[in-house]
Nucleic acid binder design. Sequence first.
DNA 1: GAATCCCGCCAGCGT
DNA 2: ACGCTGGCGGGATTC
Length: 357
Amino acid sequence: MEEDQNLVSLSLLNDEQDQKLLEKISNKSKKIFKIVFPNNKQLIKYKIYNRKEKSLEELSKKFVRCLIDYDEKIICLDQITEELGVERRRIYDIINILESLQVVKRKCKNKYSWSGFKTIYQTIEQYANKQANFDMISHKREKSLEVLSAGFIKLFMQQKSIWTLEEAAKYLGNEVDQNKLKTKVRRLYDIANVLKSIGLIKKTHLVSSKKPAFQWVGKEGLKQFQHNLKQQEQKNKAQETKENVIIQPTPQNQNVNKPDSFNTYNSYFGKCIDLLIQQQLNDRKQQTEQKIKEQNQNQVTVITPKLRKTYTIIPPRVTTPKKALSITPKKNQSNSHTPNNNKTVVGSLIGKFNQNI
DNA sequence: GAATCCCGCCAGCGT
DNA sequence: ACGCTGGCGGGATTC
């Protein structure tokens, strides 16, 4: 769903506009699939690199989203890594920071426990009551993210509610070496992002110097976070139902069941496009100015005004003359639609399209 | 130019 | 050995 938002399809070799687009795509963008047409024209679909999407904050949100319904759960590292489609290393970052809230604990190799939001509330309480002196938490190494995070939280709870990261870094240990300090600030960014992801702190600015800083929000923020998550879940469910209704193919499509010429393809796709646009118009009337561009017989591309999103519709394989297409092995199930009847094609195209909007 | 922080190398440690 | 952990800082990206 959301994941598809930054997909871009390019037909290379002939189209200057596409070439320009390609230049815009950072080399970190992931190639989802490529199709080579008989005339050597290529269709390549990219997932645009998006730094924000990869941020610890986002990842942390996703991580917690997986766990929100549980009061207790064993987290399997391999599993969660797979589920979130992310480097193992990043999960450690999140886990280490959440450990400072006691909500996650290492059980054994590959396994951590999650003990529910109530634990976070309790831990915050403990931080507030200084006597709960669990800064010696575990026998963790001095420089661990967990210890640093605990220290950071304590600054908020026990000193003042707004901190610049640099300020906090200086306060947490008396670092003189500028490089070491810089490193500590880097780590505090990591920590701040995770704490922010669950609403415990928020980004702000110092009134005096206007310097960027972080402010403690605490339980209220956490509560809000939980609330939002729940609400979002509801919305998603509603959206799903809505899409299910939309996906019904219209009767007129009966007559494009067996296209046997490219003209028929075109009319078939034309109808698809009509449907798609109609659909989009229904959904968001004003802002949907669509430009339609036909590439070659085998594909139709719908380009949204801002060029950011180009949705490409691939014809069903069954209707394609032998050897007309060669498709490189797919890495992603999202491109694996090769439905065997046109009704479902229309349905799945619309579904796909809606996902992409 | 400063702020932000992704990314992945590689060391340390447990098995 | 070997694989799991996670410290660390280069340098890309965003503000």
